[in-house]
């Protein structure tokens, strides 16, 4: 009988040890900190074709070849010219020209021109658009019009990601114009990891740029 008591006490002691070890286990937390970025977005192009008149095209290029921010971006080609009462199908292209041209200078002549061919880029120009397409599930392009075009130009995203349910992306768009006017079109690429919901509010900005717009 005494032996049974000893065995019982030993059982209780081991059980208490088990419960003690279990109850002492705390959640383990691991933080993966930032690392230096390894890619640049130097150039954003917006190209449109009039759906009723394919010869009517317009391409605007916004470029910042100086990642340090010590020089203003080159907006000399960041202008879109539309015809009034028209519909355009448009594409956003994003490039890294950091290897194509020399940082800190402008207009070296090697960078992309408005008549660039997306299928025939210089070998040193990186088409970041393909990466954004692969990462479309947490990216969203947002367009905001100011000035006279605010009521005369609208942009509709036409491409969708593979989230469930699918959400718009904005690499492919339709532009509709109404009356003659001028203004600025803001194009922002929102990075929305874990928060993409179809609206522009969540997340942070990969870029936020402006094009001048004229509707004739």
């Amino acid at each position: 009988m005494r032996m049974f008591k000893i065995a019982g006490l030993a059982s209780i002691a081991i059980t208490a040890t088990v419960l003690g070890i279990t109850s002492c286990s705390k959640p383990e937390t691991v933080v993966s900190p930032p690392v230096p970025g390894n890619e640049f977005l130097t150039t954003v192009a917006f190209r449109c074709i009039n759906t009723a008149a394919p010869f009517d095209t317009t391409t605007a290029i916004w470029r910042n070849l100086n990642p340090n921010g010590t020089q203003a971006p080159d907006t000399s080609e960041a202008i879109l010219n539309f015809k009034k009462n028209s519909n355009y199908v448009c594409w956003v292209y994003i490039f890294d020209e950091s290897q194509t041209t020399k940082f800190g200078t402008t207009n070296l002549g090697a960078e992309l021109q408005p008549n660039f061919n997306i299928n025939n880029l210089p070998s040193t120009t990186v088409n970041v658009t393909t990466e954004i397409r692969q990462r479309q599930n947490y990216h969203l392009f947002c367009f905001n019009m100011t000035g006279g075009i605010a009521t005369n130009l609208s942009v509709t995203r036409t491409d969708y990601d593979t989230n469930t349910p699918s959400l718009q992306v904005g690499l492919n768009d339709n532009v509709t114009t109404i009356n003659v006017s001028t203004g600025r079109m803001e194009v922002a690429l929102h990075h929305q990891p874990n928060v993409k919901n179809g609206s522009c509010s969540p997340g942070s900005d990969d870029f936020d740029i402006f094009y001048g717009v004229t509707i004739q």
């Binding site: 383990e28 947490y138 990891p193």
Partner: peptide
């Protein structure tokens, strides 16, 4: 995967 600056992963239980 999310191409973000920081992730913090917490494992509770086992």
């Amino acid at each position: 995967s999310f191409d973000v600056d920081r992730t913090t992963t917490t494992v509770s239980g086992a």
